[in-house]
Design a binder for these strands. Structure first.
Lengths: 209, 209
DNA sequence: CTCTTGTCGAACACCGGTGTACGAGTTAGT
DNA sequence: ACTAACTCGTACACCGGTGTTCGACAAGAG
């Protein structure tokens, strides 16, 4: 066995441990393939076996173990990859201007990401400690929190409920939409509209009364 | 092997297959114990083994297989039990009068039920086909749907989104609360209030604008 | 009291997934 | 072109859960 177990970083700026003997181009390719395959397989079935992942990566099962010490680490790496890919994608969204409209835009973009990789998340929850999951999600959550906070100070969003609760509600309504789609009661194209139509009123201040 | 595999029905009116040789008092006791244990164990850990369930039931693992052909059937029986126990409990809730207040009452009661047995549901989802799950939930869902429908015709609830969507949102916000509790960001006593405070505005008609 | 029904523990075969070991073959850096 | 890095398949030990069988024993129904 030649391969040394090093955490492969995502696309942007591979941070290698101190004196790294430099990975071969060959290896980098299979690592990328494995990671992609993991995301794909786990997104279809939360408890896909290592064999399945290896197969869809077009790689031997042993090769996988050559780069990741065990299944858990692989799942973690996959989730990390997926999350900060998404994180990068969301950077394109304009969050300035009216908080309500900004939120609508953010929801619209977030929705696809959540929809695609929600079963990957389930896979992760089976294997990783909750603390780790929360750490990985910290980035994306922060983004939403900041927007909500701004909306509150500007009077666009309600302040009688904690920010964390509001964020959680938005998150859960998106998951709800995903469930409705798999249940066949909702079509993907309408999803984003339904979500914003539901979340916005829930976020708004109590309107006199 | 003596025991005949018959689906044990919940408390109310045991429907036995045609010519049933009548089950012994002994057996009925252990079946009940097993069912309760299953609900309890699976609510703690979605993939509790048959051994664990048997142990908490104070019964041999073999005895379990004496009454349920396999793990899946046991899980199904447990879920069924839990659901129509809850169904019965919800019959006590007054759903007349102002739809908004009625909904608040319903949420308040439903919440505890959902909170207790949500991990049982997860267990079921691993083992049972989605169709079966939906069938089992049909009863409780109908109840909410009827209330929502009434609220719509009386102008208390919005009509620009499908009823099924609204019901699903309510469902998912409750699950969200459960997650927040396990995450330590929410205390159980505040949960019901947060849920209604969130769901009601989401259900209300668009208020001019 | 007797006989059927149920319970129990131990033991077993089976299955599928995980992680490791080996040896031969291939690929890419220099 | 040479060497170290990498990949592959097979094979193996291991583990834990499932479902079954057996034989002895307890308990309820008549």
């Amino acid at each position: 066995m030649a391969t040394t177990h090093e955490k492969p970083r995502s696309s942007t700026a591979s941070t290698r441990s101190p004196a790294a003997p430099a990975r071969r181009a060959d290896a980098q390719r299979s690592i990328a393939a494995i990671l992609d395959a993991a995301i794909e397989s786990l997104s279809r079935n939360p408890d896909a076996s290592v064999s399945e992942i290896a197969k869809t990566a077009g790689v031997g099962r042993v090769t996988v173990y050559g780069h990741f010490p065990n299944r858990a680490d692989l799942v973690e790496a996959a989730l990390t990859q997926a999350i900060d890919d998404g994180h990068a994608a969301l950077d394109a969204v304009d969050l300035t201007g009216d908080p309500r409209e900004a939120l609508a835009r953010l929801i619209d973009s977030s929705w696809q990401l959540v929809n695609q990789s929600r079963s990957l998340l389930i896979a992760a929850q089976d294997v990783l400690p909750p603390s780790k999951i929360r750490d990985l999600h910290a980035g994306p959550v922060k983004r939403v929190e900041r927007l909500v906070e701004r909306g509150r100070t500007e009077g666009a969003f309600r302040t009688d409920l904690p920010t964390s609760w509001l964020v959680s509600v938005m998150h859960s309504v998106m998951h709800s939409a995903a469930d409705e789609i798999t249940a066949g009661r909702l079509t993907p194209d309408k999803a984003a509209d339904y979500i914003t139509a539901t979340v916005l009123p829930a976020f708004s201040p109590s309107e006199k009364r």
